[in-house]
Design a protein around this nucleic acid. Structure first.
Lengths: 329, 329
DNA sequence: GCGCCGAATGGTAACGATACCACCTAGAAC
DNA sequence: GTTCTAGGTGGTATCGTTACCATTCGGCGC
């Protein structure tokens, strides 16, 4: 592969002049400019980003660490991140932790090794100190969707409590008095905040609330919680994230429970297919693209300038999966 | 950030000895081994992959170029690729072209600049020569899902013609005589091959077939073709890919067309939500994970040893969206 | 005509790791 | 005792690029 030295030789100038012409910094005569550009064209010269990265200690790569690229939430994040970074001329490296803290540590080490310029992460709950260490090395880090409790690393989050409050209130306003929420593990911030927002709303409305806690964000881990919630016999069910929602759909189908006649349903996270179920599903829509864009631009602002946390509200999209209950008192 | 020189200094050995100990190649005494490992630990030394990449001209990074990470097909590919590469200790860089040939060219250039060790790509139809150029520079390339016509670059593909044949035959066996297929653009191999397989099957069964060609793989581009197909008044509709399927669902819903009473439906590509529609949708399941795994391992085998093309069959998953038509002759 | 300025250019060193070679020592074989 | 071997070790050059400095040259003002 052609190097800068090859280009310089062919165009009859020094390596430095070639470098200046091609990088566009520093002065260069018109004739040098022409000769170098032409030689570079003819040789198909493509600068070596590895050498450049070593020299400049900036690689032009940003790492995105998520738990599962196949989860639609994260693929939406990946898409928005790639778009936002592309506008800055940066590349994106993606790694999935699969909710495995050890794997996440390995990934963080690999990211440190490859000298990524910045890190966007939806962290598991265990690696706060590792993140902190990376941050101390001067790596710009922004947490997205979730955050490690008690860390001062910047983050862009949903207003989880508010969203859950909204969902429960929507249900109580429709006459529901026995509501179940199947959420993620409460050791993860999204799980805890959504549970707490739901509890507040239920207390205010004087409704009963069961919070069933899924053991993990993997399908196997959610089924017991979903079954527990349904067995409890609520009139309405809130699926606390899209993994839980899928499990709910399976269980409801297996048991022949009709939505909304037998059970009302609200989903966290809006997805195209929610429109195509027998009763289109009411959902809380998260502004994923905006959140990601905000996180990306936060990466490039002074860590001390803005606040450490930014929250986005969810929007309730009403469809047909919530039935109005008239109390037959 | 600590360098090898720092580790060497702290442990009282030369840089070379430190290098040998930490990389595990070359001899080293037990005492040197201990001293170096301890110093590396204390300093939190993480090798600089950029420097290593420059020296060794191997970066340990594989690039994946797809058209849209948010498309479930490609996110499944990304997941399987990441898993397969992780087993080899390789990192994954993902870039989306959004079906834009110019953007794809820019991405290819960036990949060349970052000196990725290999490339996995679902190519647009236009950049065959660019791919060829990269291949000539010695970059291992495998095309996935689609291929550039007439190139000798290795590829892992679905048996598209066979799958489409299967879908049409399934419908004719259920008595359908007027079948519409909404496929991708025929300039893309998947579109062309699926159309041709469907035509064969229709001819063999003596059924009428309309192939409506979507202008692109973006939602806006598929709607006219879907409407054309439905207006034609078929008894059965085949959605040639998952983008088309989503558009179909929207149009059917808007028009109040019931599946399968008014129209039978077969989808290319199986997805969880197909089970949750009013009539669960019959689909051709592509072995995405296996195909991707095969593509990844093809990257690391001798280009001349195996064949240049590998095909995988799709499996027909029967559900409730295909109605049996009894001819009232 | 002399000194000065800025544009243009080239040489050198450095980023951090490792391949290659040269060396040095201790032990084995004769 | 001498030679040979092999394990252990360190020096040096190198990957491709760019920051920094030194040099040259033409033109301008006095």
């Amino acid at each position: 592969m052609a190097t800068l030295a090859d280009v310089a030789r062919r165009s009859g100038v020094s390596v430095m002049t070639a470098s200046r012409v091609l990088s566009g910094r520093g002065p260069a005569s018109a004739s040098a400019r022409d000769a170098v550009t032409q030689a570079a064209d003819e040789l198909g010269y493509v600068p070596n980003a590895v050498a450049r990265g070593l020299r400049n200690s900036r690689t032009g790569t940003v790492a995105l660490v998520i738990s599962d690229i196949q989860n639609s939430f994260y693929s939406a994040v990946a898409k928005a991140a790639e778009k936002g970074l592309g506008a800055h001329g940066l590349n994106l490296t993606i790694a999935s932790s699969n909710e495995d803290a050890q794997r996440e540590r390995d990934i963080l080490q690999a990211i440190q090794a490859m000298r990524a310029d910045a890190l966007l992460i939806t962290p598991t709950e265990h690696n706060g100190d590792h993140l902190q260490r990376l941050a101390q090395h001067g790596l710009p880090i922004v947490q997205l969707d979730r955050s490690v409790p008690g860390s001062d690393i910047r983050r862009v989050l949903l207003d989880n409590a508010g969203a859950a409050w909204r969902a429960v209130t929507h249900l109580t306003e429709h006459g529901h008095r026995r509501i179940a929420l199947v959420g993620g593990p409460e050791r993860i911030t999204t799980g805890a905040e959504r549970a707490s927002g739901a509890r507040n709303a239920a207390r205010q409305a004087g409704a009963e609330l069961l919070v069933a806690e899924a053991a993990s964000y993997l399908h196997e881990g959610t089924r017991p919680a979903v079954e527990e919630a349904i067995d409890w016999g609520p009139t309405a069910l809130i699926a606390g994230n899209n993994i839980v929602l899928e499990t709910c759909m399976d269980v409801l189908l297996e048991r022949g429970i009709d939505v909304p006649t037998a059970l009302s349903l609200v989903a966290f996270d809006d997805l195209p297919w929610l429109r195509w179920t027998p009763a289109p599903i009411t959902a809380l829509r998260q502004p994923i693209a905006q959140m990601t864009t905000a996180a990306v631009s936060m990466l490039f602002t002074d860590p001390d300038s803005d606040g450490v946390e930014r929250r986005f509200p969810a929007e309730l999209v009403e469809r047909a999966s919530v039935r109005r209950i008239t109390t037959a008192s």
